[in-house]
């Protein structure tokens, strides 16, 4: 008799689970499915200055589930002119401040902060598991280092770079050039000089162009993912 009740009970429980599961699947709208998909994606961000901080925030808001961020610097008052930090975060490590800001937007995001000045082998080690890598360095030498490291050691890994973004205005010069897995956002000519400083709007535009390219790359696999879970 006991066994009979147990069987009924198991049947009952499994029916509930199955119905919940099916309802859950059916109820997802397209935007929900996209967010669900993006929440499984990982993006690496090399540098957390004007490009990196703004790009990370945008990706977090868009729903990317895991962000690996690296920088060796601390937040200064000058950084607040264009980087996504706040006055009470001055003197904090950028990676930790950025992690806090991301988690304030969405606590469910996994943020892995790395406080270090990236070298070629770090790039390979930290970002090998990422779906896309964002180059968000300040110095030209560092940009060159990551491009060479990714193309030579992580072939096929999409790398989105921000090159040429100093000054203000000239919005129509900003463009995206794609060659294989290397995507370059910016005007590829505006260098930071005494008379051509970085400004929040132009840095923000390029940071968001980078984030936009990342989402486009991630979304290229959404259809297959969606068909597989359906």
């Amino acid at each position: 008799m006991n066994r009979f009740f147990l069987q009924i009970y198991i049947l009952y429980i499994s029916t509930i689970f199955l119905t919940t599961f099916l309802l859950y699947k059916m109820e997802l709208t397209y935007p929900e499915k996209v967010r669900r998909y993006l929440s499984k994606c990982t993006v690496g961000i090399a540098g957390c200055g004007g490009l990196g901080s703004n790009c990370a925030i945008s990706l977090a808001r868009a729903g990317v589930g895991k962000l690996i961020i690296a920088d060796f610097d601390i937040v200064t008052v000058e950084n607040l002119e264009r980087q996504y930090y706040f006055h009470d975060q001055v003197n904090k490590l950028k990676v930790l401040a950025l992690r806090d800001n991301i988690l304030r937007i969405d606590p469910s995001i996994t943020v892995k902060p790395f406080d270090l000045k990236l070298c070629s082998s770090d790039v390979i080690e930290l970002f090998a598991g990422c779906d896309v890598i964002v180059e968000a360095f300040d110095k030209a030498e560092m940009k060159q280092m990551i491009i060479e490291a990714v193309i030579n050691h992580l072939p096929g890994k999409p790398l989105v770079c921000g090159i040429g973004l100093a000054g203000f205005g000239k919005t129509d010069l900003l463009k995206v050039i794609r060659t294989g897995n290397l995507i370059v956002c910016g005007d590829q000519m505006s260098e930071v000089t005494e008379t051509n400083p970085l400004t929040a709007p132009r840095v923000g535009i390029v940071a968001n162009m980078e984030a936009n390219e990342v989402i486009e790359i991630l979304m290229s696999k959404f259809k297959t993912w969606n068909e597989n879970i359906a």
Binding site: G49, F137, D138, E141, C161, I163, V184
Partner: peptide, 8 residues
């Protein structure tokens, strides 16, 4: 050919 320019 990609020019690398400081700024970020």
């Amino acid at each position: 050919v990609i020019h690398l320019i400081t700024g970020g």
